[in-house]
Amino acid sequence: MPEPRRDQAGAKLGMWLFLYSEMVLFGGLFLLYAAYLHRYQPEFHRAAQGLDALLGGINTVVLITSSLFMALSLTALQTGQPGRCLGMLALTVLLGASFLVNKALEWGEKFQHGIYPGSPGVLALPPGEGTFYSLYFALTGLHGLHVLVGVVLLGVVMLMLWRGRLRQDHPALLENAGLYWHLVDLIWLFLFPLFYLIT
């Protein structure tokens, strides 16, 4: 058997195509957001006051910082420091997890106030404000799911690195995991102003 073919450029091209498809997946929801924002501007502004911009802001900082560590881990691998790479990845995972914890606290607080999808609290809101919260749960929920997948993916990458199956001369797996992580980060950079800052 010949050595398995390693096409690093091909692997990255495939990942970019997958990222395009992810953008379109979120794009559908962003389209709904745009249409409803256009229709319910005052309602969206009122409803957005119910979200805690400070919590959202902290999460933004957390995710951006995690992206920095992600980038540093790649540099570490490329300069032949797998131990440092592993450490940077651990920090990325840690920050990703804290984003999720923070998000869970935020959602939990909303649930306590009777705001969750289809709840009587949401049904009692004026039409546009209810729509705002439905979009909020749909978009941040889908995004949170992606962060979760990203954390698991990075965990797998760390395991491969630990076992020496990810090396300096073929870093595509790490690069692809990084690309995915940055996309998830980027999507949050749109979600944050659209939900927290339009008050």
Binding site: R39, G118, T131, S134, L135, F137
Partner: peptide, 14 residues
Amino acid sequence: VLNLGLFDASRGGD
């Protein structure tokens, strides 16, 4: 399943 109401006209959806 979650009753989001995003397409429900009675709740402001379209």
